[in-house]
């Protein structure tokens, strides 16, 4: 993807950016035996969870009321420093609840069974296998991580053009129309927040997977949400997909969402 990356692997940490030569010399000088000195490296943490494509199965039968869904939304907002705005225009949403007819506008019948009609549906970024937002981004600030299929944001690189928001058919992306800091109720000091002018969205808790934890909403869902590797036939996700009929949002668009719903 980036020639810069492969170059890095060869030259080690010092070779990045414009200061290549002096930096390299500095490292070489610090090594005990010159050429044979060990180079600094980067790697995944020992506890990191990995997958070919992370996926989620939401059993909405187990999330009947708003009281069932709100804790998992709250868990996400708290961990990721998602701000709360009273002005609807400026809203930031990673995972939120909506009605069936809004989550699945193309699957909604005039006469639905009552349980489904009133059930709160959690919706979030679908971490599509063919993400249109990634296609649209002019700087690769949003990208599909090759190692595990998560669609991520590089907030350092985002120029705030909002093309990805236009491209997303699920309304999963939010833009920081103003500095979010004053609107974060309780700052999680272990996780960064965002600055004005960049787009953000659900990151499938990439930071938690990296240290061996399940996503926050999955953990808070008390078994209503399963999470695992879509391409591992024995993953909890695949077990559920085998046993239950599931639907995905706007399948007809060919984006291949990784979030499945049991209705």
């Amino acid at each position: 993807m980036e020639s810069r990356r492969s170059f890095l692997k060869v030259a080690g940490v010092a070779a990045l950016g414009l200061g290549t030569t002096p930096a390299l010399k500095a490292v070489a000088a610090s090594g005990e035996a010159g050429g044979g000195a060990p180079q600094p490296q980067v790697k995944k943490g020992a506890k990191a969870l990995t997958a070919k494509q992370w996926a989620m199965v939401i059993d909405t039968r187990k999330l009947q009321t708003a009281a069932d869904v709100e804790p998992l939304i709250e868990a996400c907002n708290k961990i990721h420093n998602v701000p709360h705005f009273n002005n609807k225009n400026h809203e930031i949403k990673w995972i939120w609840e909506t009605e069936f007819k809004h989550a699945f506008p193309d699957k909604s019948n005039s006469f639905l069974n009552e349980s489904v009609e009133h059930r709160p549906f959690p919706v979030l970024c679908n971490h599509c296998e063919n993400p249109p937002c990634v296609r649209a981004c002019p700087t690769k600030a949003t990208f599909k991580r090759e190692s595990d299929g998560i669609v991520l944001m590089d907030f350092h690189r985002c120029i705030g053009c909002r093309f990805c928001m236009v491209a997303c058919p699920y309304g999963a992306r939010s833009f920081n129309f103003r500095d979010p800091k004053p609107f974060i109720k309780e700052m999680n000091r272990k996780f960064p927040h965002r600055m004005k002018g960049v787009v953000e969205k659900c990151n499938f808790c990439a930071e938690r997977l990296a240290v061996g934890e399940m996503p926050a909403c999955v953990e808070a869902s008390q078994g209503a949400i399963a999470f695992g590797d879509l391409y591992d036939p024995h993953s909890p996700v695949r077990e559920l997909l085998k046993e239950n009929f599931t639907i995905r949002r706007k399948q007809v668009l060919g984006t291949e969402p990784s979030v499945y719903y049991i209705v």
């Binding site: 600094p40 980067v42 995944k44 190692s147 590089d154 350092h156």
Partner: peptide
């Protein structure tokens, strides 16, 4: 001299390559 390059490298690896552990020389 180079902490800024190191930090830039770190953020690149963490954000884009899912590598969060740095092993020095």
């Amino acid at each position: 001299a180079n902490h800024m390059q190191l930090l830039d490298h770190w953020r690149h690896e963490v954000v884009r390559n899912a590598k969060r552990v740095f092993v020095n020389a």
